[in-house]
Design a protein around this nucleic acid. Structure first.
Lengths: 251, 251
DNA sequence: CGACCACTTGACAGCTCTCAAAGGTGGTGG
DNA sequence: CCACCACCTTTGAGAGCTGTCAAGTGGTCG
């Protein structure tokens, strides 16, 4: 245990199937461990990086929970994502060699530092790593597009339902419960992510409770009726929707 | 001219400073031309690719105008972007080896086909190309985040103003007017992108006209007061906003 | 234990959506 | 070449959802 906490070892990390080393061969992973030599602890409320800060590395979340936020010229800010263990942060910084968003820890956290020049160098040697890096960035693009869909077409109930389902789904993939979770963020942060005010988030939680779909006690959430929640997130999915059916039959 | 229309030549393409070959040396560009050997024409209204289609290549827009749209399980769809010449489409497909959105031509268009396996192969040889590919993907992530900010925090007037400013800015970078443009998309498509209904788009255009900030005649738009439009897009930028000022002083 | 922060709830206002009708524009076919 | 049709756009009226403002409660952390 002591040795592990001093030296990073992707090959023994229980996140390796979710994180950067996914799909690498044993010798490749050894070389990767050489690159991923540093860890960094981030206290709750502290920033891993901030807007404008020079970009040098990507970060793999090892433990803890982060939010990323962008800020407009006139000071409005928006949470663009919540990141949990195994997820990669910082790809926004590549294009201008400086970060385009803030990354803030929502609880005490630890990240693996992935110096980007080293990643690029190793990617030129190992096509598996190269392709995986591309996949990670592509996944982020696809995720962002689904958030656009949420923000552009959904109403408050649908947004919050989709948000909760997404969270438990990701937690479940990490070995946690399928129906229980502890929110690491405030109502205001949820609202910022979902494009609604904290009061609306709170009211919507209350409505879900009244409908007996979830149980909420502060940060703790129990999903009592997953199907009901799914129905709230996609209200027209069951009804014979022409477009949806076309998509299903096409695939 | 005939030769050029048969054979792609990045080195003589007037988009090379915006597109994939940016920053490559002469010999590198020659090798790239070998990869970018195919072009494809797409008629107005036709799809360059659709959701679920196998991913094989990225596409560089050579002429014409595209939209990309995602569709939810229950059939709602959302325009996630508009792409003009010099911009790269298709990065959504990398993660699952199939496209996650539709790309539809809004006018007759032509694209350069960039087979992705070839791009990856060449990226392993040329770090300049590798880094540029990363930048293009990172730029897309940053763009998506700014759309989230728009959808999450702005009101109809602000969204449409920001949209118009973004369009003319990109057109201007391509040598077009700074104050005049022709919309290639319908009010409904604008609305889908901006998360509002077509009627609201139309009404907001009318309000801008009443305020003498723009002139609109169907698809044609003349920006009469750029500063006024910027003020509409960032209403609190001028006022002494604490957060904005903190960002300015910090940078 | 106390202060502060997060959360909940209510009342009301306002923005955007919905539904509806009419006017334009561009394309197609006779 | 003209007429017709389909689609896009504009505008109005009213409804509904979410935001705003406000007050009070409860939980958490120093």
């Amino acid at each position: 245990m002591d040795i592990q906490s001093l030296k990073v070892a992707c090959s023994s990390c229980n996140l390796r199937e979710l994180c950067l080393p996914m799909g690498l061969s044993a010798p490749e992973m050894v070389r990767l461990e050489d690159v991923v030599s540093n860890r960094r602890r981030v206290k709750r409320g502290a920033a891993l990086f901030t807007i404008g800060e020079p970009f040098t590395a990507l970060y793999a979340v090892r433990s803890g929970f982060f939010k990323t936020c962008v800020t407009s010229i006139d000071g409005r800010d928006q949470v663009t994502g919540f990141q949990m263990m195994g997820e990669i942060i910082g790809m926004d910084g590549i294009v201008h060699d400086q970060h385009a968003c803030d990354a803030v820890a929502l609880e005490d956290a630890e990240v693996c530092v992935l110096p980007f020049d080293k990643i690029e160098q190793l990617s030129r040697e190992f096509s598996a790593l190269q392709h995986h890096v591309h996949k990670i960035m592509s996944r982020e693009i696809v995720r962002d597009q689904s958030v656009m869909l949420l923000l552009g077409t959904m109403r408050a109930e649908e947004r919050l339902a989709a948000f909760l389902l997404n969270l438990v789904q990701r937690l479940h993939a990490r070995g946690f419960s399928q129906s229980e979770l502890v929110l690491r963020m405030t109502r205001e942060e949820i609202g910022s992510y979902l494009g609604m005010k904290l009061e609306t988030v709170s009211r919507t939680f209350s409505r879900f409770m009244d409908d007996d779909i979830i149980e909420v006690k502060q940060r703790y959430v129990l999903i009592k009726d997953t199907q009901g929640l799914e129905a709230l997130a996609n209200p027209h999915a069951a009804a014979g929707n022409a477009k949806a059916e076309r998509n299903i039959s096409a695939s």
